[in-house]
Computed example of a mutant assay.
Amino acid sequence: MDLRIFTEPQQGATYDTLLTVAKATEDLGFDAFFRSDHYLRMGSADGLPGPTDAWITLAGLARETKRIRLGTLMTAGTFRLPGVLAVQVAQVDQMSGGRVELGLGAGWFEEEHKAYGIPFPKEKFARLEEQLEIVTGLWATEIGQTYSHDGKHYQLTDSPALPKPAQTKVPVLIGGHGATRTPRLAAQYADEFNIPFASIEDSERQFGRVRAAAERAGRKGGDLVYSSALVVCVGKDDAEVARRAAAIGRDVDELKANGLAGSPAEVVDKIGRYEAIGASRIYLQCLDLADLDHLEIISSQVQSQLS
């Protein structure tokens, strides 16, 4: 079971804070550091000092880390033109020595689009499908050849399809709860399918849909990595769990029901139940980025017990 650290910087974090967490992620033996791609805070957080850009952040971290994978859950398709995104991700992959992964979604948070003057089109899912085709098509085009795309939403003519990523294949993550279109897109384009903040029962159902869609598309269901994203709140005792829950404005019982919360033994047990339904990777949503002791206890008392 891979454990990855997943952050939400729009809630309030500087680049230096993210660098500190990423270095702790690496030092403590976690598999990867991922971040959301948002420009506006959510809920009661003040969001200070303001948002950081996902791919600028990852470019910096690419030069300041050595081992961990780096990526997004999820890059909003509404934020970047697909050709530009392909260039950005390829460059950051080169900067990291081939450690980047691209999570790409349709974009959903209308208020952040209004706040920063970003168009919020109605046909986001159709655009996402074209974006996936373009980004992966650009990377797959052989050097010396050109790439063209004549779609409803995007047109590319004789693109040199450069630069190329350092990796032969940048892993592409697709995720969500949709019952039909999402599994179909994952089957066609994804190396990994991620379901965020879902129960074991709902996760098992969605993994099954994706496996079935993959087989219909001529792939083996097991060709994809299946992963979950869950908020994490671990403590050595009830008091420490309660303190960490209060720091992120959440209720302990709610976290235990909907996330990974409680003692290390409780969290290991619940991770095992996700593993039993096919998840081989968990993204641990860490909301208090100042609490590095939280990462340490997860590393020493949770991760150490997982195969």
Rank of each mutant, 00 (worst) to 15 (best):
T65V: 04
E123D: 15
L132V: 10
F109G: 05
Y283Q: 04
I271R: 00
A24H: 04
E275W: 07
D251S: 11
G175H: 00
V21S: 07
A86R: 05
R4V: 09
T14H: 12
E254V: 13
Y189C: 09
D27C: 00
I195K: 03
A166L: 06
A214G: 03
K236W: 06
I277M: 07
P183K: 00
L173Y: 11
K122P: 12
F125C: 14
D253H: 10
S307L: 12
Y226C: 01
Q206V: 02
H113V: 15
S199V: 03
D46F: 15
G278K: 02
R219K: 11
T7Y: 02
G97L: 06
L156D: 11
D293N: 09
A245T: 12
V135Q: 07
A76F: 07
G117R: 14
G151A: 13
F125Q: 13
K220Y: 11
G176L: 03
D191G: 12
G175N: 07
L255W: 01
R281E: 04
A261P: 02
G151K: 11
V268Q: 03
Q303F: 01
K169C: 15
A187N: 02
D53E: 15
P165H: 11
I298L: 04
A140T: 11
A54H: 06
L3M: 10
P119A: 11
P183V: 02
V232K: 04
G175V: 01
F197W: 10
Q285A: 14
A62N: 09
F30C: 00
C286R: 11
A279V: 07
S96L: 05
R4G: 09
Y283L: 09
T7S: 13
I143A: 15
R99Q: 06
V241N: 02
G175T: 03
D93Q: 05
E275Y: 08
G71F: 02
S300G: 03
A261C: 10
E112T: 10
S304M: 00
R69Y: 08
G278W: 01
Q301F: 03
E296W: 07
M1C: 07
L61N: 03
V92N: 02
M74G: 04
A242F: 10
D93V: 04
E129I: 07
A229S: 09
H177V: 05
S36D: 13
I68A: 02
P160H: 12
G235S: 09
A213Y: 00
E112W: 13
T136Q: 14
I68M: 05
A276H: 06
E123C: 10
Q131G: 10
P165D: 13
P171Y: 02
V92F: 07
Y274N: 01
A217H: 07
L306H: 02
D158I: 15
I5D: 02
A190G: 04
S44P: 15
F109R: 09
I271M: 05
M1D: 05
Y116I: 14
T25A: 04
R181K: 09
A62T: 10
G98Y: 06
T182Y: 01
A140I: 14
T141S: 13
